[in-house]
Design a protein around this nucleic acid. Structure first.
Length: 593
DNA sequence: GTTAGGG
DNA sequence: CCCTAAC
């Protein structure tokens, strides 16, 4: 994550970088840096802050359930993070490190507009008391003392410890060697932290603290998070160093980072370990290896452990006359398989029954975690060829590639039902080979695969021939095919923040065309930006107007030049006025008529 | 398919 | 960025 420009709000203690929704981005790492020499205590406080921030930032994940902080070596290298729901406790999605004696700071994100408190009140309220940071917006709950640590300044702060410290409304930590304010270090934490702490604490405390909502209005927006959290226990454990020690011989160990080396006897590394197939013949185990053990400085991204039990043989539909011999059937099958494989196969993936289309997304972004049940993931074998071969020379069923039978995009479960209905009459006709047409996933363009209707037809000669479903090239088999309600929730698109130049283009287009003509804006300024829909542009304009109206301190993300924001306001005002005029005019006309 | 607005 | 209503 890029460090943003420094904004000096008068804090000389710590400046907390954004842990923003931007943390959705691939690496999810932030570097936190401290200006103070008293890095130990300071770092602990910062870690607490960071962890809380991680917790409350619902944009990271809807369900943070745990937080941790630890010290990796004496003194200056520490980390903080949180565990999110759906992850194993060994997974660390976010991590922050603290260094000392470096004075790079980054932009903070501010309290939400709905935050009732003024900046001044927070600033004064957040002056760090000797033993704790108090957050008056949630008085009585907000005490968040420094983490205790031993004489070496090294302590693993577990969730339990932390909880105790949270519950401690009266700071009692005598050995918390609070640094005096002498060096100008104000020990103030950023203003927004009051609200964050309030929220985070409420999150941890559960429904019993709903009363705080009135004082922390922003709680409402993330209500669901707190609810989920409150129902959970907090089985925090220090993350294991390595969790993949039981790899079997037949396992294939893959470290997607490709950094560590692996030897069979040294499971602390990781690499491709080509092993013989398991007795099943097609079993593949993808074992993720914690990379952190390879190098203390290496990325500690979460890793995903996948188990692929098997790839099912792609569905083939074969029709042969009853008089055909077994041998000819075998040969026919062989031909079909060979012709498919001849052009190669590639692997498709399904998560919760939903096809994963974007190869560039990370597992994290896609929501694949080690805790995914193996049945949540499906793999398909898909021909890479563009033209599915047919073995019937006079095949009358070969449809043009561009003549799919359109079907409204619908949840896969609906498709399956629909397929089942449509297939009902087909089953009786299904040939002895038992071919069927279930498990057709959505094709890449989002439309469902064509129905097998055409397979009912017969060749002019009345003979039956091997016919492959025209669009079976899209996906041949799914393993396993689990449908859940989650599958109906489509993949969320990858977040792609607007660049300044994009904003510039948007502003220019809206200045020209006005608001309310988003399709035209799209065509004019973003015609070649495939990933920007006119809805996106409309939404971006909405946020731009909002951004322009709030104070610069409250803005997040890549800063938009003030000049652009001014133009946004101007254009917005102008076009709003135009719209109002138009509406008044219309009203008058309608009244006259 | 577009637009507007809430979430 | 998603979802949905309304057109």
């Amino acid at each position: 994550m890029a460090l943003q420009k420094k904004l000096d709000y008068g804090f000389s203690g710590y400046e907390v970088p954004p842990i923003p929704r931007a943390a959705r981005s691939a690496r999810r790492r932030c570097i936190f840096q401290s200006k103070t020499d008293d890095h130990q205590l300071g770092a602990f406080d910062l870690l607490a802050t960071v962890a809380d921030k991680l917790l409350m930032e619902g944009g990271i994940s809807p369900k943070p359930v745990d937080m941790y902080s630890d010290v990796r070596s004496s003194g200056c290298r520490m980390s903080a993070g949180c565990r999110l729901d759906g992850e194993s406790e060994k997974q660390i999605k976010m991590e922050s490190k603290v260094y000392r004696n470096v004075s790079i700071s980054s932009r903070d994100d501010m309290c939400s507009p709905g935050c009732p408190e003024t900046w001044e009140s927070k600033q004064s309220a957040l002056v760090r008391s000797p033993n704790s940071i108090k957050f008056p917006s949630c008085r009585g709950h907000m005490s968040f003392g420094s983490f205790p640590f031993n004489s070496e300044g090294v302590k693993i702060v577990t969730r339990d410890n932390e909880e105790k410290s949270r519950r401690c409304t009266q700071p009692t930590n005598a050995n918390t060697a609070i640094r005096p304010l002498s060096d100008g270090g104000d020990w103030r934490i950023k203003k927004s932290l009051a609200s964050k702490h309030c929220k985070a604490t409420s999150n941890l405390k559960g429904e019993g603290y709903n009363a705080n909502k009135k004082r922390c209005s922003f709680l409402n927006t993330k209500n669901r998070y707190r609810r989920q959290i409150s129902q959970r226990d907090y089985p925090f454990k220090k993350r294991k160093l390595f969790y993949c020690c039981s790899a079997r011989n037949s396992d294939v160990l893959i470290n997607s980072d490709g950094i560590c080396s692996f030897s069979e006897n040294d499971s602390k590394g990781a690499a491709l370990l080509p092993g013989p197939a398991s007795p099943g013949g097609s079993s593949i185990l993808l074992h993720a290896v914690a990379p952190g053990e390879c190098s203390p400085f290496q990325s500690r991204n979460s890793h995903v452990k996948l188990k692929i039990k098997s790839f099912r043989v792609p569905d083939l539909f074969i029709e042969l006359p009853e008089t055909a011999t077994v041998g000819s059937l075998k040969r026919t099958v062989m031909k079909a398989v060979t012709s498919i494989l001849g052009d190669g196969l590639h692997v498709g993936m399904l998560l919760q029954g939903k096809k994963i289309k974007d190869d560039n997304r990370t597992l994290l972004q896609t929501g694949i975690s080690r805790d995914n049940k193996s049945d949540a993931l499906g793999f398909t074998l898909e021909p890479t060829t563009q033209t599915f071969p047919t073995h019937c020379p006079e095949d009358p069923f070969q449809l043009p590639r561009d003549s799919p039978q359109p079907r409204a995009r619908s949840p896969l479960i609906a498709n399956v039902v629909q397929d089942a209905v449509e297939q009902k009459s087909l089953d009786a006709l299904t040939d002895p080979a038992g071919g069927n047409f279930r498990n057709f996933p959505e094709s890449d363009d989002g439309s469902a695969l064509s129905t097998p209707d055409m397979l009912l037809e017969k060749t002019p000669t009345g003979s039956r021939a091997l016919v492959a479903a025209p669009k079976m090239r899209e996906a041949l088999a799914i393993v396993p095919m689990h449908i859940s309600k989650q599958s109906e929730s489509a993949q969320r698109r990858m977040r792609r923040p607007f660049t300044v130049s994009e904003v510039e283009a948007l502003v220019q287009a809206v200045e020209k065309l006005g608001t309310g003509r988003w399709r035209d804006v799209k065509l004019r300024a973003f015609d070649n930006a495939k990933h920007r829909t006119y809805v996106d542009l409309k939404d971006k304009w909405k946020t731009l107007v909002h951004t322009a109206r709030i104070s610069p301190e409250q803005r997040r993300g890549e800063p938009v030049p003030q000049e652009l924001l001014d133009r946004v306001l101007t254009a917005h005002a102008y076009w709003s006025e135009q719209q109002t005029k138009y509406q008044l005019k219309s009203q008058r006309e309608s009244c006259l008529v």
